[in-house]
Design a protein around this nucleic acid. Structure first.
Length: 748
DNA sequence: AGACTGTGATTTTTT
DNA sequence: ATCACAGTCT
């Protein structure tokens, strides 16, 4: 049979095992997506299951696109299978049934920046002038929603653990109220409210339960609590739930992903069948071994030994660069030589970074070498101010209650309308119990209450909005052009003669092109449809990776699921990778999984590098090689010790570790740097990480942290250098630290 | 209301 | 280095 012929035995078995609950533990590069798509295709083509009763949930838009593409090949384009991210699934269901829980179907979706505006507003409104609370509040709200907790429920969760629990919950509740008032949902809400809807409305629940007879979840290790609950509810009727994932690739813990979902799946469902995909089809043995060297340092994982038939392959190369520029030169030099002598193409290469801020130097270096590249992740086109502004005009008329959108544009382009006036309009809106847009649309009734001059200005804006409102039924691309023209974006940007503004205008035009493409592809799509696509699938808009021959520069997170013949893992320095916040929070294992994901992207050649000095935060800084480098080399049992010695040496304490002798000549230059620095700069006090006395760090002890202040240890886990402490900081929440490394001091 | 100035944080990752 | 934000001046 055609469908099964290009699968291995295990894969074939999984594909044919169609009924009931199935957990597939799929190692990196083991053909996970292949199994998933073939299984769906098998259901439809061989089992005669109707495509529209099959649901496949993926984690990113990229994965959605890839899966749809592959399925189109296997089944032809009209298979009707519902493939989407869980967020857009939620949005679709909520548009249809949202009124059951009090939402209009045209609700706005607030992205990170909209939501940040709202949070600021809530804080200002409560007259709190503590700068630190914004971040904390954001974190709390996200956490509460990811756990699926209402303000009340969340209060019980944190009460007693966090000092300002009451305040935080009050602000969370107010934030919710405002969202509701604006007929808007943030990203987390899409899930949170979907759960609520499914629990409230039998009609909605049974509709989708009946519809989806077979449910598939990709990247299951990345699901959070609410997502899992939603999936379980949807699958409750037919019980056909197929989940695939790899606990070693769980790298979204910071967003509430719970590895336990995958670790406990077979315990939760006793009848679940478990399959393992252990054959790696992607990488050579050398690369796979490197990956294994790293990941085996993690404690919380399913032990799995991947194998490959790709042969031994080439040794992994390491480079300890003298500075960031030198590192980039090395990378580009390697690329040039591989292209010239070994016949590689540009699209075969990926340069992987931990954080977006590291990409710049590689971009520069590739530009000077005339090598074309693309940057994945990073600042998104749709996050640009000018794009958000155009969209805000469209949003404001699509959802009349979207006050965040109105406030965003009421004074752009500048119309002389300030905060005071906006507040007044808010008051009228409250008095009349109508939306701010409605206040504007019927401004005549209120204009008398505003100062004369201001009233004139507001009227101009009101007339504009009225005009746009009356024309919102146009085809999406036409409407956008109409908006841009009426608002006068071109005038606003081109009159200043500033380089930056010209670019902005070009971006607006690009947005119009995007809208044209969209309209052509989706004739008859409504304004709401368009806005939803933009807010949930904006990154899917990127050109597809294989079409152009370009080098890829990307964050390690954004290449999950992809593969490249040659991979460079750069910027392997402490505080960068592992990141400083991960170190602070004691989330080393997740960082290590990120390293694992990065390594396993490579098919043939892998290069790992670090720079000893790097330009960061406006100045050149000394950097310490990441402990992951030692782990990758297979010296993992010594990694912590070496790391400690090396840090002491660079800090001007301790003697030169002998293993440094094996490193390239550049490190000797570095040594003279260290010596010089030592001579000139008075030494700051340094705590030797390995020598720290750990006694006294027990549950109940009070400790002090330079950034978080005083806190109480809740529990200590592990021993020695690995011991972690979970500490409650009043008002800031609970954090985890590695005691030996964290800057903690005991207080009596 | 808007322009100007100084300060302080910022750099983790994504829907 | 760069940017956002708060505070002050015009």
């Amino acid at each position: 049979m055609d469908l099964l012929s290009n699968l291995n035995e295990v894969q074939r078995e999984i594909v044919q095992d169609t009924e009931g609950k199935l957990l597939v533990l799929a190692g990196a590069g083991s053909g996970k997506t292949r199994v998933l798509t073939h299984r769906v295709a098998y259901l439809v083509a061989e089992k005669g299951v109707w495509g529209s009763s099959v649901l496949a949930i993926t984690f990113t838009n990229k994965a959605t696109a890839e899966m749809r593409e592959r399925l189109d090949v296997l089944l032809g384009p009209d298979h009707g299978v519902w493939i989407s991210t869980i967020h857009s699934l939620a949005a679709r269901i909520l548009r249809r049934f949202g009124e059951h829980i009090g939402y209009d179907s045209n609700f706005s979706i607030y992205d990170e920046s909209d939501s940040a505006r709202m949070i600021s507003k809530v804080i200002t409104e409560a007259q709190i002038d503590d700068n630190r609370i914004k971040e904390a509040l954001k974190e709390h709200i996200g956490k509460a929603k990811n756990e699926g907790m209402s303000p009340e429920e969340y209060f019980y969760e944190i009460n007693g653990l966090v000092n300002d629990a009451e305040l935080i919950v009050k602000l969370y509740a107010r934030y919710e109220e405002l969202l509701k008032h604006n007929n808007a949902m943030d990203f987390d809400d899409l899930l949170h409210k979907l759960k609520k809807l499914l629990m409230t409305s039998d009609e909605c629940l049974s509709y989708y339960q009946n519809k989806f007879r077979y449910i598939h979840v990709d990247e299951f290790q990345d699901t959070n609590k609410v997502q899992y609950e939603i999936i379980k509810m949807l699958a409750a009727k037919w019980g056909n739930l197929f989940v695939v994932g790899d606990d070693d690739q769980s790298i979204y813990g910071w967003r509430g992903a719970r590895v336990e979902n995958i670790l406990n799946f077979d315990k939760e469902f006793k009848d679940a069948k478990v399959h393992k995909l252990l054959e790696n089809y992607r990488s050579t043995e050398e690369i796979l071994n490197t990956a294994n060297n790293v990941i085996q340092n993690n404690k919380a994982r399913h032990e799995k030994k991947l194998f490959t038939n790709r042969g031994k392959g080439l040794k992994v190369e390491y480079y300890n660069a003298w500075n960031d520029r030198n590192e980039a030169e090395w990378v580009v030099g390697k690329i040039e030589s591989l292209i010239f002598y070994n016949g590689y193409r540009k699209k075969d290469f990926a340069i992987l970074v931990r954080a977006n801020s590291l990409t710049r130097i590689f971009e520069q270096m590739l530009q000077t070498s005339r090598l074309s590249y693309r940057v994945v992740g990073g600042y998104k086109f749709f996050d640009r101010k000018e794009i958000q502004d155009v969209l805000a005009y469209m949003r404001a008329v699509a959802n009349a209650r979207d006050n965040v959108a109105i406030e965003r544009i009421i004074n752009f382009p500048a119309r002389g309308i300030g905060d005071a006036t906006i507040d007044k309009l808010g008051v009228y809106s409250y008095e009349m119990q109508v939306s701010t847009l409605n206040v504007l649309l019927s401004l005549n009734d209120h204009a008398g209450r505003l100062p004369k001059g201001i009233a004139k200005k507001v009227e101009v804006f009101a007339d504009l909005m009225k005009d746009l409102y009356l024309n919102k039924g146009m085809p999406v691309d036409k409407f956008m052009q109409y908006v841009v023209e009426k608002v006068g974006f071109e005038q606003a940007y081109l009159s200043t003669k500033k380089e930056e503004d010209i670019t902005r205008w070009e971006n607006v035009q690009q947005l119009i092109n995007y809208a044209k493409e969209y309209s052509a592809k989706n004739p008859g799509a409504s304004l709401e449809d368009f806005l939803e696509t933009v807010s949930l699938e904006e990154s899917g808009k990127d050109e597809d990776p294989t079409s152009r021959d370009k080098i890829t520069i990307a964050t390690m997170h954004s290449v999950k699921g992809l593969e490249f013949r040659v991979v460079f893992i750069v910027g392997c320095e402490e505080e960068i990778f592992p990141s400083s916040q991960a170190l602070k929070a004691g989330e080393l294992e997740e960082e290590r999984r990120i390293m694992y994901v990065a390594i396993t992207r490579a098919q043939e050649r892998l290069y790992i590098s670090n720079a000893q000095r790097r330009f960061r935060f406006g100045k050149v800084q000394d950097c310490l090689q990441s402990r992951f480098v030692q782990e990758a080399k297979g010296e993992n049992e010594n990694a912590y010790k070496l790391f400690g010695e090396r840090k002491a040496y660079l800090d001007g304490l301790g003697k030169r570790p002998s293993y440094l002798d094996d490193e390239p000549a550049s490190s000797r230059i570095r040594e003279s740097q260290a010596t010089r620095a030592r001579a000139v700069v008075p030494q700051p006090k340094v705590v030797k990480p390995v020598a720290k006395d750990l006694t006294g760090y027990v549950g109940g002890a009070k400790v002090k942290h330079p950034n978080y202040g005083e806190g109480t240890i809740l529990v200590v886990l592990g021993e020695g250098a690995n011991a972690t402490a979970t500490i409650a900081f009043p008002g800031l929440g609970v954090k985890k630290f590695i005691i030996a490394l964290a800057p903690l001091t005991l207080i009596k």
